[in-house]
């Protein structure tokens, strides 16, 4: 277990290094002198000096990386030239919104996927399984940006449900009920996408697990179907489910970006798009770096949980 974790931790460090180099290099994809592109032509000498210090622009490129990295490690991601606030404060105020949407969507997705997958696996190819299979297949082919448009059209515009449309966002601290209302459509959209993945993965894994000899063994003990499903089949299969959730997190964030953008919810996604459109590149860079590192950290965390659920993995 300890050896396994050390190995994973080393891999984590390697990945974070790759991400940091990638994020650093983004600035150099900009055509021309980064300082000019980032600050525009009319920049004051003071602003330029701050940027040069932040990015180490006067030094050779590999040294620039270390200057930049040193700043990052001190929590200094630079200054947004649009809002003139620090990038880290911009991120700090936006990130919780993404967290909230994702957590709600995942609770919904698991709550829907687990019972339906169990129902399907109990009778593969039965009528319920076929209907669920066809439904999940169709949902798989509906991109989140279409789903959210449809939802907004029917729920916010046609039915007129309050606080669900664009620009309805209110922070949790101000009014938590309206806050939940305003995040309900985004969360539902993300939940649908996750549900399809979780349902399909869990279903096929459960079907395989239910063929196992130890399931027949559990039957022969006289345990109820319910108990066999939850205690004997679900636990080994949940490893596949957690794996899917872990892989899913990147796509989830990206889908969240679009949904936020459409409904003008000031999470990371909306902030990112605004920053891209206004060429606020340090904000873009900061968000890309933060999000990538978060995704990797979440993957690592899931790995750890999978290990606890299935003691076989770390032993192999």
């Amino acid at each position: 277990m300890l050896r396994y974790l050390t190995k994973r931790l080393m891999l984590l460090v390697g990945i974070v290094f790759v991400i940091s180099v990638g994020s650093f290099y983004l600035i150099h994809l900009l055509p021309g002198n980064p300082a000019t592109v980032i600050l525009g032509f009319g920049a004051t000498p003071e602003a330029k000096a701050i940027l040069y210090k932040q990015l180490g622009l006067s030094k050779p490129i590999y040294l620039q990386y270390f200057v930049w990295l040193g700043n990052i490690l001190h929590g200094n991601l630079g200054i947004s030239f649009i809002s003139q606030t620090t990038v880290s404060s911009v991120i700090r105020s936006a990130l919780p919104i993404d967290g909230e949407i994702i957590i709600i969507s995942q609770i919904l997705a698991f709550a829907a996927a687990i019972p339906t997958a169990m129902r399907s696996a109990r009778k593969p190819d039965g009528i319920v399984d076929r209907v669920l299979g066809a439904t999940s297949f169709t949902l798989l082919s509906i991109p989140p940006y279409i789903l959210i448009v449809v939802l907004v059209l029917f729920i916010s515009i046609k039915l007129g449900v309050s606080a669900t449309g664009p620009s309805a966002y209110v922070s949790f601290g101000t009014d938590w009920i309206t806050n939940l209302e305003s995040l309900s459509l985004p969360a539902f959209t993300l939940a649908t996408g996750s549900f399809v993945v979780y349902y399909r993965v869990l279903r096929s894994d459960l079907i395989a697990t239910l063929q196992e000899e130890f399931i027949t063994m559990a039957r022969s003990k006289g345990l109820s179907q319910r108990r066999i499903m939850w205690r004997h089949a679900f636990r080994p299969s949940s490893v596949a489910l957690l794996g899917a959730a872990s892989v899913n997190i990147g796509g989830l964030l990206a889908a969240g970006f679009i949904v936020q953008y459409l409904l003008q919810i000031p999470g990371l996604g909306y902030t990112l798009i605004l920053a891209i459109n206004s060429s606020d590149f340090l904000v873009v860079q900061g968000i890309v770096l933060t999000v990538s590192v978060l995704v990797v950290a979440v993957n690592f965390f899931f790995d750890f949980i999978i290990n606890i659920v299935d003691p076989r993995i770390s032993r192999e």
């Binding site: 196992e212 000899e213 130890f214 027949t216 063994m217 559990a218 205690r231 004997h232 636990r235 080994p236 659920v309 299935d310 003691p311 076989r312």
Partner: peptide
Amino acid sequence: MTSLNPVM
């Protein structure tokens, strides 16, 4: 080898 639940 297969008749015991490996994760219990």
